[in-house]
Design a protein around this nucleic acid. Structure first.
Lengths: 186, 186
DNA sequence: GTCTATACGAAGATAGAC
DNA sequence: GTCTATCTTCGTATAGAC
């Protein structure tokens, strides 16, 4: 299959970006992790490392948004939020607190702000849809979704620094009532 | 003054880390920005770049914590939180949304997690003290302070991606009631 | 599509003079 | 304390064969 290795490279890039950042993830690392052939990098990604990172951000954005949407199908009002925060928990624990969000690496180390904003926007839309279906007004849902994304990203950084899930648990505990009341008011 | 250039280097490193990250901030950049003499880098920082970054994180941590503590002296209950979020707003606007938090760069690109955790801890203590003096219980104040730090860090990343203050404003708007009610319950 | 070899530049670190 | 010169490593990107 021709483009199989290409997709593996994108997935590996997203995986490695979470732990080593943009500068810290070399092509050779992506090759080694994905098992893709070395000689085809610039065939698949003529735009070089930036293009690979851009597609990795898009991949991660779609992956998480799809997970949130899948969780929204149930009737549980805050299932989407739980699916979202659960995703980060797993990244932190599975990596022993060494990995975080690949999009953060791209924001702080490259010029791919637009790709990052697009991914965040898809997360926000997916989360807000879940909140609206649970009773929140569209305006409030959009704001709360932004808060959920921001605090999850920030809490992930705090957890990486402290090598502990405690900051994440504290943040989620504080947000629970806020989310519930946003769904009740609508 | 012997150690004047040393301190300038630390300050410049903190400044440059916010915009270009750890890998993106070279010694030559620090030299150029601080005006410090090139030949004395390893005299002042025998531990190399890691030591410089570690001190930059400590500097930024102290700087922000001191600002929060100064704002706490007034009687305004949420003055500390406002001072804290105001600091980020200024970083974002002054840099045209290119800069963020230097500690984030260090978390995602180096092995200085402990220094980052220590800086965050000082912010948390300063913010929590302000909330306690405004009426919150110590336990709740600690959790809310963590939420404030996490959401400010995350919102800063969202603002950098979108090149807009809107995410930050949305987050602050959502947190206001939560902070007020935390101070009333104590 | 995939390979090897290599050009090219960047940056951290060291040595030794002043 | 500060300087210059250099060593060394690494990583992106390109060229050209298969």
């Amino acid at each position: 299959m021709a483009s199989d290795s290409r997709e593996r490279m994108v997935r590996s890039a997203a995986y490695l970006l979470r732990e080593h950042g943009y500068s810290g993830t070399a092509f050779s690392d992506v090759i080694a992790h994905s098992g893709a052939p070395r000689g085809s990098i610039y065939h698949h990604f003529p735009g070089g490392k930036e293009q690979l990172a851009e597609e990795a951000v898009r991949y991660a954005g779609d992956f998480v948004a799809a997970g949130v949407r899948a969780a929204t199908r149930d009737d549980d009002p805050v299932a989407a939020v739980r699916a979202f925060s659960g995703w980060w928990r797993r990244v932190l624990v599975d990596s022993d607190f060494r990995a975080g969000c690949p999009i953060v690496a791209v924001i702080t180390e490259s010029r791919l702000a637009d790709a990052a904003a697009a991914a965040f926007r898809r997360w926000q839309d997916a989360l807000a849809a879940g909140l609206v279906s649970a009773g929140a007004t569209p305006e409030r849902a959009a704001r709360v979704a932004t808060l959920v994304i921001a605090s999850a990203e920030g809490a992930t950084l705090l957890c990486r620094a402290r090598r502990s899930l405690e900051p994440f648990d504290d943040v989620v505990a504080e947000l629970e009532d806020l989310i519930a009341s946003a769904c009740e008011e609508g």
